[in-house]
């Protein structure tokens, strides 16, 4: 097995999908003491950010409406939710639907292709300028949130 740049993100997604499928739905809106977010926000953010990082930055259309940016974008929190925010069950379904589509996108794209919307914050060590950069960043970002989900799960007993 020779890992291309496409290998990393699907591996992380497979592990994350297995973890969230086992969480207790009755606890996904609880916020651990001291934290900003809930498990539902964490999952929504993962769903939103993977499409934003892999599709939007490359200039591709994403199926997410602007509401998703307000519910699950960077620096949002459950206080930004509205009655229309997807339920836990809907988020699980959306995650499952998005995974094969994003995997196919990664398999056919050119890692050196420049992004339509590069994401650069040098002071934060973030330099995402190409499709390959975005794939790496998406995998690392998703691993990071899986770590947070694991902590929330243990604190909440979910």
């Amino acid at each position: 097995m020779i890992p291309r740049f496409t290998h990393h993100w699907p591996m992380v997604r497979r592990i994350l999908a297995g973890v969230v499928a086992e969480l207790e739905p009755g606890l996904v809106d609880a916020i651990p003491p001291g934290c900003r977010n809930s498990l539902r926000w964490q999952l929504g953010h993962v769903v939103w950010s993977s499409q934003w990082l892999l599709l939007f930055l490359a200039g591709e259309a994403t199926p997410q409406t602007a509401d998703w940016d307000r519910w699950f974008g960077f620096h949002t929190a459950p206080g930004d939710f509205t009655v229309d925010t997807p339920t836990w069950t809907t988020l699980l379904t959306t995650l499952d639907d998005a995974t094969p589509r994003l995997t196919r996108w990664l398999e056919q794209c050119d890692p050196s292709a420049p992004l339509a919307h590069p994401m650069v914050a040098v002071e934060m060590l973030v330099e995402v300028r190409t499709v390959g950069d975005a794939a790496h960043f998406a995998a690392g970002h998703e691993s990071y949130h899986l770590g947070q989900i694991n902590v929330y799960r243990r604190i909440l007993g979910a």
């Binding site: 992380v12 990071y144 989900i149 902590v151």
Partner: peptide, 20 residues
């Protein structure tokens, strides 16, 4: 790299939990 990102996410949650 996956393992490192996973623990980074966990570690980032610790200061807020400890403060609370």
């Amino acid at each position: 790299t996956w393992h490192e990102g996973l623990h980074f996410g966990q570690m980032r949650a610790f200061p807020a939990l400890l403060a609370a």
